[in-house]
Write a protein that binds this DNA or RNA. Structure first.
Lengths: 344, 344
DNA sequence: TTGAAAGCGCTAACAC
DNA sequence: GTGTTAGCGCTTTCAA
């Protein structure tokens, strides 16, 4: 243990003393503000070097009423959507001199609340949130202040019901509409929908699917729209099984979430079915699997989403007056046409 | 914007005033220390409720010289090893009332240094680190204090050369030895090795492979050991191609890193080769792909690694005297025998 | 250009 | 059991 190491122990007073100036002058030289003579600045800088001094950000935070820290509250960092998101947020934050606190909710409301409370307590300067509150649940009154405090929040991917919070998301409904149209153009009329419940994201995607069917005068059969809890392991497999057991004549499978593909493929494999020979498959979110299996995919610009959310957050941090206008930003997805969908 | 919302503006003085007690008493009641009469406690609690008060962790931090925050410095959160690691660290940290700052280095030394400096500045209580410093580079003298300061550090996965830092890792050499033994027992003698350079992790795995070959009197052919920079996209594909182009009679492929499998499979597919019909395949790290393709795999207990590292870190935080003894913890991997390796 | 001093919000030693 | 006060390390106003 090197006492002088991590240098946590050195203060601006130590620097000032060694440089033979006052604390104020040392502070000015280090912090690069106010007026300092060249001579004084040099002496201070030498002392900084020698003592390995770094300002204590906690003290700065208390004094300046900011922490240069953002919080990202997400479902689960193991999910590829979330980790791409966090990657880009952290990158963008770092470029601006900010750090990122990471908070997993495991899609549990209780944890979302707990995390919000602690990050408020830690006085983060802003929050990026993917809320677990289902689209048609209202946030209880006594918790609303957590979503409407004086720390700016930008929501990502999911709308938060009844709160005026900025949102960055994909063009879910349109992209889904186009995907369904594509399947219909190939002759599919019975398209099994596999998704997870309850979030605005999935709602919007289902809406696009319905619009496409209605437009082509295809009746909507709710028995071939199946869903599961978010983050349920094996959801893909289970739902595929459920769908195929019904013997309902579906000719295509349309997966609305990124975690489902593996399970779907596994279940199909188990039943000796091949894509696209026996069934067509179209999925959201481009992952390694999708490339390997040539799956036609709707690819979300996840990192772009993270970047935009972070920039908007900085905007709200720097310009508090902008917090009054709620902004919704929709980013375009990309339709990647591979070989998993065929004419019937 | 609800002025009383996020309640960042309320201080213990506000609470004290409303409760009609002194700041000290309010503090005692809120912080649950010292002696407070039931009556006073109740008044304070009511005030806390009413004002939505939460203590300012920054002020607490300055006063208590701790932040209840850990930093995790890793290569890239998009990599599944790292995100599983972070998941478990965050979970363990949260259970103990700590938060986690996430820092991606993108495997660049410069960013590792920058992050270390800022997290020191932010006075995190401890650091979990997967250093990018290659196994045989020494950390430059003027930066050593970053690895040897008064903030405890636990290293994960990779040794840091020349520094006395605790380490939690897998039983790399042994597991690799057993894997090679297994391939040899199936009759393989020319086993192509695909890995990334420079980290102790891979070194140890190669060492295990060598030991197994030597033990079976199989000459070691360095031309069938190929590597690439870490995090190079398409490394798997490129290296497989390189290996197969040599026409060197290899009958098995052994992948030492988790990011490689997809590329390997893609390249094999492109050449019309099938596993295990045309070549056997064995890989480190169990991912969805490995299950789908029935790939025999060495699975690391990643979350366990994160948990152990975090616990050790807490230990070092609470018992500074323990920082003197360096501890290396090796966790057992699991050998998952699937169908990608066959007798020749 | 520089220095002294106040104060950010909290805890805890000390006095009552 | 309660209140007063000093001080954590910093920035910044004010005066010199």
């Amino acid at each position: 243990m090197n006492r002088n190491g991590g240098n946590s122990s050195m203060t601006i007073d130590d620097v000032a003393r060694l440089a033979g100036v006052s604390r104020a002058t040392a502070g000015r030289a280090v912090g690069n503000y106010g007026n300092v003579s060249e001579k004084a600045r040099e002496k201070v800088m030498r002392a900084v070097e020698e003592l390995n001094y770094r300002p204590n950000a906690i003290a700065q935070g208390l004094r300046n009423q900011n922490t240069k820290t953002l919080a990202v509250i997400i479902g689960n960092i193991k999910n590829s959507y979330y980790n791409s998101l966090v990657f880009s947020i952290e990158d963008e934050a770092m470029k601006n001199g900010y750090n990122v606190l990471i908070c997993n909710t495991n899609e549990q409301e209780r944890k979302e609340i707990e995390h919000l409370q602690t990050v408020y307590s830690k006085r983060v300067d802003g929050i990026i949130l993917t809320s677990v509150y289902p689209v048609d649940h209202l946030i209880p009154d006594h918790l609303r202040h957590l979503y409407d405090g004086d720390v700016p929040i930008v929501s990502v991917d999911r709308k938060i019901n009844g709160m005026d919070i900025d949102l960055v998301q994909s063009d879910n409904e349109d992209a889904s509409y186009r995907a369904a149209k594509y399947l219909i153009s190939l002759g599919h009329r019975r398209i099994g929908l596999i998704g997870t419940k309850d979030y605005s994201t999935v709602r919007e995607r289902i809406r696009g699917y319905r619009r496409a069917l209605v437009e082509s005068n295809i009746p909507i059969d709710y028995s071939i729209i199946v869903d599961a809890e978010y983050a349920q392991p094996n959801a893909g497999r289970m739902l595929t099984s459920k769908l195929l057991d019904q013997n309902n004549g579906i000719t295509a499978l349309y997966a609305l979430n990124n975690t489902l593909c593996g399970g779907i493929l596994l279940e199909l494999k188990n039943r000796g079915m091949q894509v696209p020979r026996d069934i067509s498959l179209l999925a959201w979110d481009d992952e390694e699997l999708n490339q390997l299996f040539d799956i036609t995919t709707i690819s979300q610009p996840v990192e772009e989403t993270g970047r935009m959310a972070t920039r908007r957050l900085f905007d709200l941090i720097e310009h508090p007056e902008k917090r009054k206008e709620k902004q919704i930003l929709q980013l375009k997805t990309e339709f990647i046409c591979r070989k998993s969908c065929v004419k019937i």
